[in-house]
């Protein structure tokens, strides 16, 4: 089978947790727990992110080259933690996914779905 060229669009749609992970790492490198905290701060309504599931997503993103494992920053106190940073490809994929979601939202607004979501008392 012939290898296809890597484009950001070929990764879409992204799993919500993967997209959230990329969003978290856009702000700077972080370890898994910091990513989880950032996600849960953004999405308080989500049920707690479970450790194995989180790692499965991180592993996939790293295996696909959207994020990468980096050396721990020098001031780190806990040497057991792995640190991750978003790659250039990862930033492109996050941007493409955000654009996709924005387009979806627009369609939803046109269809009146968003307005109907908050019923009047």
């Amino acid at each position: 089978m012939k290898d296809q060229p890597t484009t950001a669009h070929s990764f879409l749609p992204l799993h919500a947790l993967e997209f959230q992970t990329l969003l978290s790492l856009s702000a700077g490198s972080a370890h898994a727990y910091a990513i989880v905290q950032a996600i849960e701060k953004r999405q308080p309504a989500w049920s707690p992110v479970q450790p194995t599931n989180m790692y499965r997503r991180i592993w996939r993103l790293a295996a696909d080259g959207l994020i990468e494992q980096i050396e721990a920053p020098p001031n780190v106190t806990d040497p057991r933690r792995k640190y991750f940073a978003i790659t250039e490809l990862g930033s492109q994929v996050a941007a493409a996914e955000a654009a996709r979601l924005r387009s979806l939202l627009r369609h939803a607004e046109e269809a009146g779905i968003v307005a109907r979501e908050v019923p009047q008392a």
Binding site: D3, F11, A63, D64, G65, E68, Q69
Partner: peptide
């Protein structure tokens, strides 16, 4: 797992 050392060799496989 792709780490920063292996990054140069990486060809993503969508």
């Amino acid at each position: 797992l792709r780490s920063c050392t292996a990054r140069r060799d990486h060809v993503a496989e969508p």
